[in-house]
Design a protein around this nucleic acid. Structure first.
Lengths: 104, 104
DNA sequence: ATAACATATTGACATATTTATATATGTATG
DNA sequence: CATACATATATAAATATGTCAATATGTTAT
C-alpha cells in the first residue's frame, strides 16, 4: 500500500506538540466541549482553537457543532487510518540477510 | 498507565516531517547505512545527520556503528513503545452517556 | 604520521510553529 | 434588534525547526 507523505506528516502533527497531547488525553475521557477543554488547559481561547484545527486536520479528532458550542471527540476512523500509516512506516518488510551496504 | 507528555512528543516527532517519513519508508526495507540513505534522499549529509538524530532520539530508529559507517534500522522496542503511547492517546476510556458539558 | 573517507557538530539563515491580543463571525436570548 | 456568549480568524511577536556550508571528529588504509 502506498503512503501519502504530506498527509502522513499532517496526521502525526497531532501527537508531536505537548498541548495537543494533553488535549488528546482529555478527549480519551469522551467528547468534550471547547469551553471545557479551555478550562482544563492553561492556554488562551485562540490558542486552543489553533490546536483544535490541527487536531481536526489530522483526522484524529472530529468536531460537532451544536448551537454555539463545539464538541470535540476522538475519531475512530481517523485513529484507524493513523494506525495504518504507523504500521506501514514501522513494519520491516523483509528481514533481509544483506546487512546494509558498506560493511561487505 | 501514565504518559510522559514531553517524551511522547519526542516519539511522534519522528513521523511529522516529510523527510523523516521518507527515511522511515527506506528503513522498512531493512537496515541501511547512512551513505545509502544519503544517496536516496535529496538532502545534504548534515541534514541527514540531523534527521537521524531526531529519529534515534524518538526511539523508533536505532543506530549501529561499524567502523566509520553508521547503520540505521527500525527498532522493534521503540515501535512497541510508540504503539503503546498511541493507544493511550487514542483509546476512549468510557463511552459515557453525558455528551460533553454545555448542551444539557 | 598522513591522507582519505564517513559521519557529527557548529553557525547562520529562512521558514514554520506556537502563542497572545484584537477583532470578526455565528448563535441564542431578552 | 441588541446584547451576551462561544468560537474562529487576522495579525504580530517569540521561539523552534529545517537546511546548508564549513568544520570537527573518528576510522581505515597507505
Amino acid at each position: 500500500m502506498e503512503l501519502n507523505v504530506k498527509r502522513t506528516a499532517a496526521i502525526f502533527k497531532a501527537f508531536c506538540d505537548e498541548n495537543r497531547i494533553r488535549i488528546l488525553q482529555l478527549l480519551t475521557g469522551g467528547e468534550k466541549c471547547a469551553c471545557k477543554l479551555l478550562e482544563e488547559m492553561n492556554i488562551t481561547q485562540p490558542t486552543l482553537s489553533h490546536h483544535m484545527k490541527i487536531l481536526c486536520d489530522s483526522g484524529i479528532v472530529e468536531g460537532r457543532k451544536e448551537g454555539k458550542w463545539m464538541h470535540y471527540s476522538i475519531s475512530p476512523e481517523g485513529v484507524k487510518n493513523a494506525e495504518k500509516c504507523f504500521e506501514i512506516l514501522t513494519t520491516v518488510k523483509i528481514e533481509n540477510e544483506n546487512k546494509s551496504c558498506c560493511s561487505e
